[in-house]
Design a protein around this nucleic acid. Structure first.
Lengths: 158, 158
DNA sequence: CGTGAAAGCAACATTAC
DNA sequence: GTAATGTTGCTTTCACG
């Protein structure tokens, strides 16, 4: 992977906002013609910088307005437990994010559900199947911002 | 918006995993032909259930391996302050998620940066520009799971 | 009337030059 | 960066329940 030039970063910025543009439109915006633009996008996909292309759905319309952040502590600090926990989380579609954290709590999860009752069901199932010593649930009242767009570095001095 | 049938939900599940499939391929997978499949996708886009189509980038390759969760408290509980805060957050590309929370802390942010030094710069800027009475930063050590795919409800009894 | 199938044209991605 | 070709998306038309 040869590092990105200004046009590559421009392409990435556009594509992470909207991937439905045609190559022609894309080429126009970055000041290229179709073929070289297509070759760059192709390269960005093969290199893995572009991981995937997805549709983002509207959680409210789907009836999933509730996001809950759960801070989880465990008392089993072994690699085996961590692997089993990760494998279990991967299977739960309600868990959209899960990070292993530094600090007081071992994991931070974001869980997306239809209502508080649904979260309660999820919660009971979770603590039944994995060994958790402490869990704190915090409900999101309002989504101020949520984006998949990463702050692409300008590329100087690296 | 007439509520979704099983095929619509199937289409959404496929598209939120991969939007690069052709209509033909998509039609095949759900057991339709091109035209009705295309019409359904069109309808899902116009209704807003499909919010947008985006490329997901690889944060590590881009040099952004660090996610920080910041819990923020304010002492100014007015609508004006909240609006100003939201507007400020919207302008900061490093802040990829921001939720107004129930519980001890007013806001939870996820900030994506290149390293700890970059977070420190971000942090200093943030507290300089908005009135914050308390902030706790928790660093993510490892991303166990991170998906944009929502758990689409089965559609029974709603 | 809502929903699906078939055919044609225009636009597009992709190949070689 | 230019030009040609095979695919695809999209429109129209028609048939079914």
């Amino acid at each position: 992977m040869s590092s990105l030039d200004a046009i590559d970063r421009q392409l990435l910025a556009i594509l992470q906002a909207d991937v439905s543009l045609s190559i022609e439109e894309l080429a126009e915006r970055v000041g290229l013609t179709k073929t070289p633009c297509w070759r760059r996008v192709q390269k960005l996909e093969k290199s893995g910088i572009i991981r995937r292309k997805v549709a983002l759905l509207n959680a409210e319309i789907l009836g999933l307005p509730v996001s809950v952040f759960a801070q989880v502590k465990t008392d089993q600090h072994t690699a085996e437990w961590a692997d089993a926990f990760a494998a279990h989380i991967a299977k739960l579609p309600e868990v959209v994010d899960c990070y292993r954290m530094a600090g007081d709590y071992d994991y931070l999860l974001r869980i997306v559900v239809s209502d508080i009752a649904a979260y309660d069901r999820f919660y009971k199932e979770l603590i039944r199947h994995v060994g958790i010593s402490d869990i704190v649930s915090n409900f999101a009242m309002e989504q101020i911002k949520s984006t998949t767009e990463l702050p692409i570095p300008s590329g100087e001095k690296e």
